[in-house]
């Protein structure tokens, strides 16, 4: 770092390198951890289907006074495995939309037992009160089945992907998601180019590239770790405003997981940076000792 101009250019390139390292870490994380498979496995791990079942049961129990349909008409036939299937359909459809043009289409799995249960209740009720099973009756029956599927779908859409689609958010996100591999390559490529430039600028003292890369890794690691540790320590995501427990659990579970992965990645970056700086310091000391002039021994006999 003997020449001023070399030093200044290296400092400027280091600023870019820090951003490059942070961007690369985020891109790698998004590429490897944001997928339908990871969302589904995380939701299962956090028992989200069980929460969907509990919330549906609560909803139908609360609605009994207005609808007159006992909750068990629905809940006796809505198994956790069926709700898991519905949840998976919505997540897979959401990610399909992200990989295409953002158009969300979810084919709700049919539940014959549910339809039969609703048919049975309505027919028994109509027979009890002597209600004529006319066109209005059939219309009400079909409406009830359709509303049941619609509600189950809405409760099982734990990442609110259909809502995001209807608000145009999925279409905007799909423009990024479709090209996530390219974005990752761009971020890594940018970082590599900055490193190459650092090497070229410090061609007379190539060893100093270890120093610059080391401090940039440490700076990027520490600057990223501070907010990640704060978010985890303060349980910031617990203030997420959506009150439905299954949606809350799915979203916050995903956010905490991504934060934990980012923390780990940045910790590795920090440690790698420290190691590079230590190597630079040790090799620099060795070289300085080699360069020291040999002691002169006078010959006086």
């Amino acid at each position: 770092m003997k020449k001023k101009s070399t030093y200044i250019i290296s400092v400027i390139l280091s600023v870019f390198l820090v951003f490059g390292l942070l961007g690369s870490a985020a891109a790698v994380l998004a590429y490897t951890s944001v997928s339908a498979g990871s969302c589904i496995s995380l939701a299962k791990k956090n028992s989200v289907p069980a929460k969907i079942q509990t919330e549906l049961s609560r909803h139908y129990s609360e609605k009994y006074n207005s609808s007159g349909i006992p909750a068990n008409v629905y809940m006796d036939v809505l198994s956790e495995s069926y709700l898991t299937d519905v949840m998976e359909v919505y997540i897979n459809s959401g990610f399909d939309a992200l990989e295409n043009d953002g158009t969300f289409v979810a084919a709700m799995p049919k539940n014959q037992a549910l339809e039969d249960s609703i048919d049975k209740f309505f027919n028994n009720y109509a027979d009890e009160i002597g209600y004529e099973k006319d066109a209005a009756f059939e219309k009400k029956l079909n409406e009830t089945k359709s509303n049941a599927y619609s509600l189950i779908g809405s409760y099982s859409d734990v990442y609110k992907l259909s809502a995001m689609s209807s608000h145009g958010v999925l279409a905007k996100l799909s423009k990024l998601y479709r090209h996530k591999a390219l974005l990752m390559a761009d971020a890594l490529g940018f970082t590599a180019i900055i490193l190459l430039l650092l090497m070229l600028v410090n061609i007379r003292e190539r060893r100093t590239v270890l120093y610059w890369t080391g401090i940039c890794s440490v700076i990027a690691g520490v600057l990223g770790l501070i907010p990640c540790i704060w978010l985890t320590a303060t349980k910031y995501y617990n203030s997420f405003t959506i009150k439905q427990p299954q949606v809350f659990t799915a979203f916050t579970g995903m956010l905490y997981r991504l934060t934990a992965l980012m923390t780990a990645l940045l910790a590795v970056l920090t440690v790698a940076g420290i190691i590079l700086v230590i190597i630079y310091a040790l090799t620099r000391d060795k070289e300085e000792k080699h360069q020291q002039p040999a002691p002169v021994i006078s010959e006086n006999h």
Partner: peptide
């Protein structure tokens, strides 16, 4: 602010709008 409105970071049943 819209997404994380409860400054007290209480549980979801008490989070405000």
């Amino acid at each position: 602010n819209l997404a994380f409105m409860d400054d007290l970071k209480t549980d979801p049943t008490t989070a405000g709008s």
